[in-house]
């Protein structure tokens, strides 16, 4: 197993961790941050798979724009999730 493959598997495991955090967290702002971190990891994975176009699009749309939209929505509603 080369170092690149190990890095890719590590990225995917971190991506799953970010997804679980985004679902489980009660603080919605933290959940959004976890989602943005997952999107950034996915963009890094795309770059390692030699698809820089998709990596730029994912970093721009997923990690920046949707995070901004979610932050704006949370600012206009509530921050804590209700049971």
């Amino acid at each position: 197993m080369t170092a690149l493959a190990i890095l890719q598997v590590l990225l995917l495991v971190l991506l799953v961790v970010c997804g679980v955090l985004a679902v489980r967290l009660k603080d919605l702002l933290g959940s959004v941050i976890a989602l943005a971190a997952g999107s950034l990891l996915l963009s890094l994975q795309f770059f390692l798979l030699q698809a820089p176009d998709v990596a730029i699009a994912e970093a721009g749309i997923g990690a920046a724009l949707t995070t901004a939209l979610f932050v704006l929505a949370i600012r206009k509603t509530r921050r804590k999730e209700e049971e």
């Binding site: 820089p52 176009d53 990596a55 730029i56 699009a57 721009g60 749309i61 920046a64 724009l65 901004a68």
Partner: peptide
């Protein structure tokens, strides 16, 4: 790499 869509999204993230 990149193009109109990606660059536009990056500048739109500046607006955001």
């Amino acid at each position: 790499p990149g193009g109109g869509f990606q660059g536009g999204a990056v500048i739109a993230s500046a607006v955001a």
